[in-house]
């Protein structure tokens, strides 16, 4: 009987000490959010060869959780193209925004829940001349293109984009749909995605 009481005492003291440790570092809880119908329009002139695509990129900030128009963006969307606010211009793009920050991204494989911590620094990439941090084209980045007759753009299952934002925070996102109201028969270039943002700078934890 004494042994049990002693054990309980030790355990409870451990719990209390660990609790008090937590209390010393103030961490904000991660933010989970769903963004619906982020519109990323583009125009394409098919009268020239190769066809010329243009239009303002839609810029998104994880810190505010909303579309921004200034330099405080982390990712920028236009059609199926996603830019990161870090590195240099890919080039050959009309209306390409200049990179003002040092954001980077990693394309990870897993379920959204499984990616519980941001990957090692080596996995993160920035845009460079001629090549995107998030590879473009069917099957190599976040989506596949079904071709004729449906021409559907579908997000590849198990592709999670982990972003190191311009402020050095980490976020993970899973794109769920490229169509308005997640209806494949509706208009395209409307992103729906889930994301988790850790408001603590440099903290890689997503839980």
């Amino acid at each position: 009987m004494k042994k049990i009481i002693l054990t309980l005492a030790v355990v409870s003291s451990m719990i209390f000490t660990s609790c008090s440790e937590d209390d010393t570092t103030v961490t904000e809880a991660v933010v989970f959010k769903e963004v619906k119908n982020l519109h990323a329009p583009q125009t394409t002139d098919y009268t020239v060869n190769p066809p010329a695509t243009a239009g303002e990129f839609t810029k998104f900030s994880f810190k505010t959780g909303a579309v921004v128009t200034d330099d405080s963006w982390d990712l920028a969307f236009r059609g199926t193209t996603i830019l990161v606010n870090g590195g240099v211009e890919v080039g050959g793009l009309v209306d390409e925004p200049t990179r003002s920050g040092d954001a980077s991204l990693a394309l990870e494989t897993g379920t959204f829940a499984d990616i519980s911590i941001a990957p090692v620094a080596a996995n993160f990439k920035q845009d460079v001349a001629g090549s995107y941090a998030l590879a473009s084209g069917s099957g190599s980045g976040w989506y596949t293109y079904a071709g004729a007759p449906t021409h559907a753009i579908n997000p590849i299952a198990g592709k999670i984009i982990v972003v190191k934002t311009i402020d050095g925070n980490y976020a993970k996102m899973e794109i769920l749909s490229y169509y308005k109201d997640q209806d494949a028969t509706s208009d395209s270039r409307y992103y729906t995605f889930n994301y988790v943002y850790n408001p603590n700078v440099g903290d890689k934890d997503f839980q």
């Binding site: 198990g158 769920l176 494949a184």
Partner: peptide, 15 residues
Amino acid sequence: NQIFIRRTPTSPSEK
């Protein structure tokens, strides 16, 4: 465990 699917076109990924 490298392959993920969606049960419906826009549901979250699963192994």
